[in-house]
Design a protein around this nucleic acid. Structure first.
Lengths: 343, 343
DNA sequence: TTGAAAGCGCTAACAC
DNA sequence: GTGTTAGCGCTTTCAA
């Protein structure tokens, strides 16, 4: 940090206070001086020292971003997209984001992120489901928290969610509109609020169209919502019921696993069984056939969350808000009209 | 930041200077006072303010981490693993990492990362191939640069690379040891030094075993090293030569695309054609059959790079170092002995 | 071996 | 509308 506020002040023939006021866009500064000072700032390529600013303002200028390790590392670039949405938004702000992961099975004993212990962040964004114990331990530090794609059972926090209910409804109604009546739900991680809502949407759609909710058509165990999980869940469903002509998978990863099971067992997609997923992760497109799904704008979720944080820090609004990001049906080739003579 | 160095000094009955010396583990401090001060620090859960430290030391305490957008977002968690390796290492240090992406086609006009413009980082780690123009523009800022998995053509920079040559050799020799003689190379991105080395390893292996290097068995165009690329490259290779019994793909993503092409064309893997990849990305395991590959320790690459950065900042060593991370053959089920009567 | 004090670059209260 | 100045929390001479 070579050039300081003093250098600017000297060159602009004003005091450092004036430069500071200009920097912070204070109202009581004449348009004239402002222009002059800004010109000098530009000329000298001056950038205020974050350290000095932070020292006096008692803010760190950093926002923490917490993901569990497996969310960050999973094959589908879901959470990385969310992070990037936040990072894009951060570029327009004076804040930097400190990204860190916590163990997926974060416990009593696990160390909290260093930026928490050192109080190096002004607020924290948490994306995806994290253990309750983490949230509880975070509470003691009185750092504002914003959640993305997860809403903790206890406590009132601002959060950004997707319209899971609507998505479940859209996906199921899409299948119904294709003539399917025996639609299975491929689920996992029973306690996850998003998954619950997707299942609820599924049920609502069936009810709405006077279709029965069949117990054997719902796979919903506490298991990872991964490709492997989808593979196993589908195996179980198919073995239990021969009627199924369509699968609504609670996410794309499971849907991809489902498709693999079906392929290996010579069940054609979508001719024999239609498959629809949820999330619209990138790799959907290279599936064979390309996966129909419910699109969730990950970038938007991240940027909305970041915007929430900055509002929070400016105390613009006080009550914890919930933002629901809309979803969209993307019909590709893994779903089709029920072929006549079957189902 | 409630408790300050003053509070600690008062409670420990020493001056703030003494506390500071203890914090920085200065030699000329008596073991006795040191112990006492440390105890108070512990009791009060005191953490020095980074802002104040930075202000006086003229360091930011941050390390920048740059990835191109598509590297960060790609399906294979390759670069995310590398980042995590660096982040893990950073936790042991006083530094924080600021992760940002740049457009994959970063140009003259593209804005540099904000942390560069604002001089908010003490050093920068760049992972993966980036446009030369980025490196050139970064030069002006005189921020130390460390590269991971890429070595810029011009300039002398410390970097962490994988042993691509050795990997190419290992992969090809594995196939040769399985009896294969007509081995194709599935490549792309002709200008990438890593890919060149992998191809070189392939050629060396063939030569070493007195096998001819066949032009039609090498696909090597300037195209993305993605699943799609692998699919197309394989199509082209197979159509040109009927002799091929094994494929060495320059990375796993292309290998997965290759397997997909083979499957769709009723060519069995590994019975008809063996396939080996490079990188050992996680999703390899769920491939059918599981992909043989060359394992690269991404976590190690990240942590080595971070360690390099901290050494650099402590001026411990001056000459730019190159670290080559060893690779390892992982033989899974996508490669097998050449069935007799063929090839 | 330890303490006193200056000063890093900035903001904000107060003075003019 | 602009300038003066104290002070944010720390490190680092320089004295003792």
């Amino acid at each position: 940090m070579r050039t300081t506020i003093k250098d600017v002040a000297r060159r602009a023939h004003v005091s450092t206070a004036t430069v500071s006021l200009v920097l912070n866009d204070h109202r009581r500064i004449s348009a004239d001086t402002k222009k002059r000072v800004l010109k000098v700032i530009e000329e000298m390529d001056y950038h205020p020292s974050q350290a000095a600013r932070g020292l006096v303002s008692q803010h760190t200028g950093n926002i923490g971003f917490i993901l569990t390790e497996d969310h960050f590392l999973r094959t589908e670039p879901f959470y990385t997209h969310i992070f990037l949405g936040a990072e894009f938004e951060a570029r327009k702000s004076p804040y930097f984001i400190l990204l860190t992961t916590v163990p997926t099975n974060f416990s009593d004993q696990s160390p909290l992120p260093r930026f928490v212990l050192q109080k190096s962040v002004d607020a924290i964004i948490i994306a995806g489901k994290v253990p309750d114990i983490l949230i509880n331990r975070l509470k003691d530090y009185r750092i504002p928290l914003v959640f993305i794609d997860y809403f903790p059972g206890s406590g009132e926090y601002p959060c950004v969610l997707t319209d899971n209910l609507q998505g479940g409804l859209l996906a199921t109604e899409h299948l119904i509109s294709c003539g399917h009546e025996h639609i299975a739900f491929v689920g996992g991680d029973i306690k996850h609020p998003s998954i619950r809502d997707r299942l609820l949407g599924y049920k609502m759609a069936l009810e709405k169209h006077n279709l029965p909710i069949v117990k054997d058509h719902i796979f919903f165990k506490e298991m990872p919502t991964s490709k492997e999980g989808g593979y196993q869940a589908t195996a179980s469903l198919i073995q239990k019921s021969k009627q199924i002509t369509a699968l609504f998978s609670c996410n794309d990863a499971m849907a991809i696993g489902a498709m693999q099971y079906l392929k290996e067992n010579n069940i054609r997609v979508p001719k024999d069984i239609s498959v629809i997923g949820f999330d619209d992760i990138e790799s959907d497109l290279f599936q064979d056939p390309p996966l129909s799904t419910i699109r969730v704008s990950k970038i938007d979720m991240g940027s909305e969350a970041f915007r929430m944080v900055t509002e929070l820090l400016q105390k613009k609004n006080r009550s914890p808000r919930k933002i629901i990001i809309p979803v969209e049906l993307v019909a590709r080739q893994s779903t089709c009209r029920l072929s006549t003579g079957k189902g």
